[in-house]
Design a protein around this nucleic acid. Structure first.
Length: 896
RNA sequence: GGGCGGUUGGCUCAGGGGUAGAGCGCCUGACUCACAUUCAGGAGAUCACUGGUUCAAAUCCAGUACCGCCCACCA
């Protein structure tokens, strides 16, 4: 509820005993702390979303991980992205729901369980369907538990009360409902068509489950004798299908073969007549221009066969062995049959040429064995009526991809789509809700098990043995998980969801299908934005693979460096949609950053002990004004970047702010006041530090949830949990361009003195004196205001600021910054030759810059056409260069 | 055969019309009272190539080369 919203009014009232005096442990130890923090969140029920809370809903449904195994780094990336977004929106005031769940993953899971059975010397056939499915449920329970444990270790802020599984009761009900409605609308049909068949998995596959891979093969030229003399030659890559040939085809426009239209050839191996038909599907330019037609084993041939009424004997069975229709080849497997056919053709002198040939062959995406196109009775979803609206939604701009180039991938697939084969000859999955009458053969599609045949009234009904493609249920995920088809409160409130986060590899499998199913059944898009990310590869850019041992277990990284470190390493600096490589060094860097924050917080806590009433108060000291202004910019930038879902840039921006501006500069600047004697100055410093770090913890929480929450639990005046706290608002932090401008010369001078000290090996302990020669009024004021800072951070004994040119003390090292001339007398430490060298090097650089500016300013085109602003800037640059050069040259002369 | 992405310091990557950024690595110094999982300083890049647009190109356009990915029913 409203808990955790941290306003300054509230802050003034709250005096939290947890805050003051409680110390963080001196060592940042994520492994020890993260599980406790997660438990704290669970105890606080922090991730629970309420329908109808009155707040704007923000919903993400998880891409349900397969229960085949444990999560890999790709999942980790996917989930970190979702979690970062959901935590951000939760803090920003939305009713944020991240709905978790897992996927039954039909073929894949059946596979792994069969493998496990094989190790026990069992097979699914030995067990029988029911017992086998029982075994898979056991597997599912085991791996689901592992996956959920992993998600919690990663810090996923899922609403666990809404956990779902694609085969749970609710999802199953939605699946049956959709199937029946599609059937009733004529969008599902059953029929005999060529489908992709995997002889190893012994199931049909959809088109996208086939992976095309270029292989070295052969192109054989086979002669077909013609009745009445002569012959035609056709080329083939698959001689094993020759027993299934029932015709020859040529292009109707092919002059070479016009005389053969309507003639009849003899099958080269079997006693069969093969009509020669003319069909436009035949390309004249390829091979001999004659195609052997094997309707049952090739998609193109199937169409040709249909058009010309050719028979379509199935000569290969579901295991890839030749059937009785293959005559003498019966019983051979496909490879043996190929060899036998080639040998027989050779013996008869009907094989004339064998060419080397490279072409793409389809392989099963699960087991990688070559796919056989096979004529088979399957269930299909009619795609054109569904794909059209899904494409139109994108074209109307209602659906957006981030990055938008992936929109084209989606559109092109929908544009060229063919009907979706949804039946699978597996045991694990949603059983097709169709029954066949043993008596009359009628097919009954029903939400519930029918008692009698609706055609003949017979009671002997048998349910279709097939199950549905896994992606059929995944396609319903955004609404089936929220209660559809019932009009639940969740569905009304959290649907449509707000964002989908997934990899580009499943745009077809999943994203597009969710869109058309949602449009068809809810009338709404399931989400209006899709954030696409790339693959996580190993350090060498290879795809990670468990079998090759190149995979990294996310939990190993979590154990070694913490979930925050892994998260930061996968998120920071990665552009949306791009693949990224996993490097342990980056995880270490993430750990270092978390450690940095931890220590900054420890420093603050040590110094905020007596700050019991933080209040909103305009900063007056320069450093405070500066850091709060910088913070405001960091918030604005973060909001802008998160708004366009560029989490990589947002994380990088926040790291830069935190590490460089807050830790390296501000904390150093503020130490003197915190440790000094002036109670007012100390209090103002405390307040600014508290405000800055409070906002920093809030901003970083989506990127480093554990460490920020752990710190928060010790934070003065905090309320509740950070993950339910508010998101900082830039308007709460005063913009202060003047403070930012003033800090510039101060930081420049500090850096210049540090550089000189470093280059001349001035011992860190020795307190030098520095002379600044400043001509410009503004810069002079800035440096006066920042005098203490310069003294402090540059390690000075004394800082002397003068307004006019002086001869610097003998034996000085010199640098020129924007607006100031810096002299550090080094006496015996200085090496005059070396100093002259330094100056000459600096001069060379300045000369180059000055020359470039002069050239530009001498170009009338530039002066006329470039914006006045740009020209003015160039003039400034030129003058600056001239001034610096002059000063350095003067100094060089004094060196003799 | 179509399409998409990449080519930026030794490595891995951001950026993207107005004088090149980060992390890691490297070199020099420092165990400075939050942090050596650190601090300070430094070296290191004609942003793949060729043309074009522009006052101005690493950035936009066209083409080339190489790398990667996706799609595709020339048997």
């Amino acid at each position: 509820m409203g808990e955790g919203a941290l306003t300054f009014q509230e802050v003034g009232r709250v005096k939290d005993g947890m805050g003051a005096g409680v110390q963080l442990s001196p060592v940042y130890d994520p492994a020890a702390m993260e599980p406790d923090i997660y438990a704290l969140w669970l105890r606080g029920d922090a991730f629970r979303a309420e329908a109808d809370s009155g707040r704007p809903p923000f919903t993400i449904v998880i891409p349900p991980p397969n229960v085949t195994g444990s999560l890999h780094l790709g999942h980790a990336l996917d989930n970190f992205l979702q979690d970062a977004v959901i935590r951000w929106r939760r803090m920003a005031g939305d009713e944020a729901l991240w709905l978790p769940g897992t996927d039954h993953a039909g073929i894949a899971t059946q596979h792994v369980v069969e493998e496990r059975l094989a190790k026990e010397g069992l097979s699914r056939h030995a067990l029988g369907r029911e017992a086998f499915v029982e075994r898979i449920w056991e597997w599912k329970e085991e791996y689901e538990a592992i996956i959920l444990h992993q998600l919690r270790r990663l810090g996923a802020s899922c609403d666990w009360s809404r956990l779902r599984f694609t085969m749970d009761e609710g999802c199953s009900r939605a699946v049956r409902e959709v199937f029946v409605r599609l059937w009733e609308r004529g969008l599902i049909y059953r029929g005999d068509y060529i489908i992709n068949w995997c002889p190893d998995c012994r199931t049909a596959l959809s088109d996208i489950e086939v992976e095309h891979e270029e292989v070295a093969a052969h192109l054989w030229t086979v002669h077909y004798p013609l009745e009445g003399g002569g012959m035609l030659s056709a080329v083939t890559t698959r001689p094993e299908t020759i027993p299934g040939d029932t015709g020859l085809a040529v292009n109707p426009d092919d002059e070479r073969y016009r005389q053969f239209h309507g003639r009849v050839a003899r099958h080269p191996l079997l006693d069969r007549k093969l009509p020669v038909v003319a069909d436009p599907a035949v390309k004249q330019g390829f091979g001999t221009g004659v195609v052997k037609v094997t309707p049952a084993h090739d998609p193109v041939d199937f169409e040709i066969g249909r058009r010309h009424g050719l028979p379509s004997p199935v000569v290969m069975d579901e295991g890839g062995r030749m059937t009785a229709a293959a005559g003498p080849y019966q019983g051979l497997d496909r490879q043996a049959c190929r060899e036998a056919v080639l040998a027989d053709l050779q013996a008869r002198g009907l094989l004339s040429r064998t060419e080397e040939y490279r072409h793409a062959v389809g392989h099963c995406y699960r087991c990688a064995s070559p796919i056989e196109p096979l004529l088979s009775r399957q269930w299909f979803v009619r795609m054109p009526p569904l794909a059209g609206p899904a494409a139109a939604a994108l074209e109307r701009g209602e659906l957006r991809f981030v990055p938008d180039r992936f929109a084209r991938v989606y559109l092109e697939w929908l544009g060229g789509i063919r009907d979706w084969c949804i039946s699978r000859q597996l045991w694990w999955g949603h059983r097709i809700p169709a029954w066949h009458c043993r008596q009359c053969g009628q097919t009954i599609v029903s939400r519930t098990t029918p008692e009698t045949c609706d055609a003949c009234g017979h009671r002997e009904l048998e349910q279709d043995p097939d199950v549905l493609d896994t992606w059929f249920s995944s396609a319903l995920w955004p609404f089936s998980t929220l209660g559809w088809p019932a009009a639940t409160a969740d569905l009304g409130y959290f649907f449509p969801t707000s964002l989908l986060v997934t990899g580009y590899d499943i745009i077809f499998f999943w994203v597009a299908r969710m869109v058309f199913m949602s449009l068809e059944f809810t009338g709404k898009l399931p989400f209006d934005r899709v954030l696409i990310h790339g693959l996580v590869r190993d350090a060498h850019g290879r795809k990670m693979s468990k079998s090759k041992g190149t995979g990294v277990d996310p939990l190993e990284a979590v154990d070694r460096h913490g979930a925050d470190a892994l998260r930061f390493s996968l998120l920071a600096g990665n552009a949306p949609g791009n693949d990224l490589r996993f490097h342990w060094e980056r995880v270490e860097h993430g750990r270092n950053f978390a450690n940095k924050l931890w220590n900054a917080a420890r420093f603050a806590l040590m110094n905020l002990g007596d700050l019991d009433r933080p209040v909103m108060e305009a900063p007056v000291e320069l450093a405070d004004r500066w850091i709060l202004a910088r913070l405001r910019r960091a918030i604005e930038d973060t909001d802008r970047l998160l708004g366009r879902l560029d989490l990589g840039e947002a994380a990088r921006r926040l790291e830069d702010f935190t590490w460089t501006e807050l830790c390296d500069w501000y904390i150093e600047l503020v130490k003197s006041r915190l440790h000094g004697q002036d109670p007012g100055a100390r209090r103002r410093a405390q307040l600014a530090l508290w405000r800055t770090l409070t906002a920093t913890l809030q901003l970083l929480h989506p990127f480093l949830p554990f460490v920020t929450e752990a710190i928060w639990q010790h934070w003065p005046a905090r309320t509740g949990l950070l993950c339910r706290a508010s998101w900082p608002h830039p308007a709460d932090y005063p913009a202060d361009a003047e403070a930012e401008r003033t800090m510039g010369p101060i930081m420049d001078v500090i850096r210049a003195i540090r550089t000189i000290r470093s280059e001349f090996n001035v011992p860190p302990a020795s307190r030098a004196t520095a002379w600044l020669v400043v001509a410009d009024d503004q810069v002079a004021r800035a440096l006066e205001a920042g005098r203490d800072h310069v003294v402090q951070l540059a390690g000075l004994e004394e800082l002397i600021v003068v307004r006019e040119a002086i001869s610097p003390p003998k034996g000085s090292a010199t640098a020129v910054t924007a607006g100031a001339e810096v002299h550090v007398p080094l006496r015996e430490l200085i090496d005059l030759d070396r100093e002259a060298d330094r100056i000459r090097r600096q001069l060379a650089g300045i000369a180059r810059d000055g020359e470039r500016s002069r050239q530009k300013l001498a170009d009338p085109q530039f002066l006329n056409r470039a914006p006045a602003e740009v020209v003015a800037k160039e003039r400034e640059r030129e003058q600056e260069a001239a001034m610096r050069a002059e000063k350095l040259e003067r100094h060089l002369r004094t060196l003799g």
